[in-house]
């Protein structure tokens, strides 16, 4: 079968480092519709390198939509125009010959650009360090299935745990709010019996760190849910709000929980 080669104009954000001012640079590429979006960028980089030019820096790892490393804003949408996929799962057949594609990094104060399309998402790690864990006692390993968990609870926890921490929610939110990510992490632990001991401390501490890192406040536009490659529901944000209010009411100390 004959495949038609697509001729595209790319407008890619180039920025030397965190402190320099970036700008868009035009590139003309010819690419097979069977190529993935990242393969197209690989081909562009090969060409740039062969010309002795600096390749475009972008992040990727597994390239099968599970690690959360890749993440580009393509024509104004995190992970591009197709819902429920990561950038690495986007294929060039979704574009038309002659299209102009704008490629930008995730933009947020809490996600400073490191170089070109690569941003520093270590803020997410700091939030997780503040409470995204459970206590595990030492001693002999417990039998599997010793703790009964209803199927619907397990499924809901799993839905939250599907978050790959890519940061598209922050990139999509007009307020650069991280609440979908944080609520997914809080819920996947807080729904299960193993996550109960730290349940209220967790929500209190994680939100404190989230606020300190300069993420915005949620205004319930639900853009995060629409752009999330894993379809994490905003119902987890509601659940987090509930737990946070409960944490403040239940806490017996006057400071943090």
């Amino acid at each position: 079968m004959e495949t038609k080669i697509l001729k595209l104009k790319l407008k890619i954000w180039r920025q030397k480092n965190a402190n320099s001012v970036g700008s868009f640079v035009d590139y003309d590429v010819s690419v097979s519709p069977d190529a993935s979006f990242l393969e197209m960028l690989d081909e562009l980089n090969n060409k740039l390198e062969s010309q002795g030019l600096e390749p475009v820096v972008f992040e990727s790892d597994c390239r099968e939509g599970i690690c959360g490393t890749c993440g580009l804003v393509i024509n104004g949408q995190p992970h591009g125009p197709i819902p429920r996929i990561a950038t690495c799962q986007l294929h060039m057949r979704n574009f038309k010959d002659g299209d102009t594609i704008w490629i930008e990094p995730f933009r947020a104060k809490a996600f400073p650009v490191i170089k070109d399309l690569m941003v520093d998402r270590s803020g997410f790690d700091k939030i997780l360090q503040a409470g995204g864990y459970i206590s595990a006692n030492v001693g002999g390993a417990q039998d599997a299935n010793m703790i009964p968990i209803p199927k619907d609870v397990a499924s809901e926890a799993f839905d939250a745990a599907a978050c790959i921490g890519c940061g598209a929610c922050v990139a999509a939110c007009k307020n650069a709010s991280a609440m979908l990510f944080v609520s997914a992490k809080i819920s996947h632990l807080g729904l299960l019996p193993q996550g109960q001991p730290e349940r209220y401390r967790r929500v209190d501490r994680m939100i404190k760190v989230m606020d300190e890192l300069g993420f915005g406040s949620c205004t319930n536009t639900y853009a995060c849910e629409a752009e999330c490659p894993k379809g994490i529901s905003v119902k987890f944000i509601a659940r987090m709000n509930r737990d946070y209010i409960a944490a403040k009411l239940k806490s017996k100390t006057l400071e943090q929980v």
Partner: peptide, 26 residues
């Protein structure tokens, strides 16, 4: 504060694709 959380705006804004006009114009 929410303006400050994104100091550099996107060149292309895709918000019409992912949220309602009511929520964006509060």
């Amino acid at each position: 504060e929410n303006k400050r959380a994104r100091p550099v705006e996107y060149k292309i804004n895709g918000s019409t694709e992912n949220s309602s006009i009511f929520s964006r114009t509060m």
